[in-house]
Amino acid sequence: MKRARYEQPKKKKKRRRLAATIAFITAVVACAAVICLLMFFNISDITASGLVRYTTQEIVDASGIQIGQNIFAIDSKKVQQRIKERFPYVDQVRLHRYLPTSVELEVVETQAAVAVVGAPDRYTLLSKSDRIVEQVQDVSTEGLPLVVGTDFTQLPVGFEATQEALDTLEKQARDNQKKKLDPPPLLEETRQALDVMVMVHYVLDAAEQTGFEGIRYIDVSDPLCLTVLYEDRVLIKLGTELELPYKLKFAATVLEESGDYFSGTVDVSLSATNQRAYSREEDIMPLLQEDYLEGYY
């Protein structure tokens, strides 16, 4: 019994010494690693790729990355945010680290997908990711489908009409309401823009799925009756966004049967339920949006 009582404290001391030794070694290794990072991984070369509209120097300057900065100290999310805020046609930025000292910014640029007709001689170009990439006075050479029945000219370049942006603004509005502050700016504008872009995407996606070409504009003024202009001669009434691929296929069949010289209206808004379309040869100019008539017809 006496011998057992003697050995127990010795085992505890050995364990303490071992733990202390391991802790010391770990600390030394950690310090050595930090010193290596600070001494041997400082950036000496920054490049950018995938550029069409912008230069490498512009992208590097906007990124905030500096020569001599530690390669592991870069926050890639902040880098992307800085670049996208400055350059609206940048859709994505991927950061590549090439040890020991090189960094590449891989840029994915976007293109305008539609033009929203606003005030006279004012058009808002939107990318596929619902980002305002430019406000222009003339889009006659762009060849883009036009969106009529709304106005985005009051929204700033770089503005993104996304569900994430809307959720952020609505949360801020609730917080401000508790504090009895004003709602955040662009809350209503974001809601309206998001609703519009959802409808536009439905139409464009359906047209792509069915191979329906020749859409000149999309009228979103009445969400229960979406209307598209086909080749400046036929106004197609689609109704709601439900069953749009089927409706466009039906419309394509009617247009083929009507011939290349038909000018008027085609109503396929109920075709998904009754398999019927209604066409009428008529002057469509009084039915077109005034802004479109002034600039394009």
Rank of each mutant, 00 (worst) to 15 (best):
T153P: 00
D182S: 09
F72D: 00
F41D: 10
G68P: 01
I132W: 00
A48H: 04
L244C: 10
L146K: 07
V198C: 02
Y296A: 12
E164L: 12
I25L: 15
A20L: 11
V200M: 01
Q66Y: 07
E164N: 10
D232T: 09
Q57E: 10
D232R: 13
Q135T: 07
R280E: 03
V196S: 11
I71V: 09
S127I: 01
T56Y: 01
T240K: 11
R97P: 08
V200R: 05
R3N: 05
A30V: 15
A19I: 15
E188S: 11
K77T: 14
E281W: 12
V157C: 01
A4M: 08
K13I: 09
K178F: 04
Q92I: 09
V147C: 05
M197F: 12
A207F: 05
P88A: 11
I59E: 00
S129A: 09
V254G: 03
Q209S: 13
V148H: 03
G259M: 03
E104I: 02
E256T: 14
M285N: 11
R233L: 11
R131G: 06
Q66T: 14
D151R: 05
F250C: 00
A113H: 05
V198W: 04
E281F: 12
V93F: 09
T47N: 08
V228H: 03
T110M: 08
E294A: 14
R16G: 01
Y54R: 13
R97F: 06
D283R: 15
K10W: 07
Q137S: 14
T162P: 00
E241P: 04
S221W: 04
L248G: 14
M39S: 14
D291S: 14
D182V: 05
T21N: 00
D195M: 11
A27E: 02
Q275Y: 05
D61G: 06
L288V: 13
I83T: 08
A206F: 10
V52C: 13
R15G: 02
T227E: 10
V28L: 14
C31Y: 05
T124S: 11
D45A: 12
F159Y: 04
Q192G: 04
K11M: 12
A19R: 12
D138V: 08
A30N: 03
L99S: 02
S63N: 05
A62Y: 04
E290Y: 13
K178I: 10
V107Q: 00
V107H: 08
F250G: 00
K12M: 11
E290F: 06
V198T: 09
E231G: 07
L270H: 02
R3Q: 08
R53W: 03
I132Y: 00
G295V: 08
R280P: 00
S221K: 12
F87N: 04
L169G: 06
A113L: 13
R174H: 07
R174K: 15
P223N: 15
T273G: 01
L194M: 08
P245C: 14
K77P: 01
Y217S: 12
V133Q: 00
L166Q: 03
T265Q: 03
K249Y: 03
P156T: 06
V234C: 04
A32P: 09
P185I: 12
N274V: 10
T141I: 12
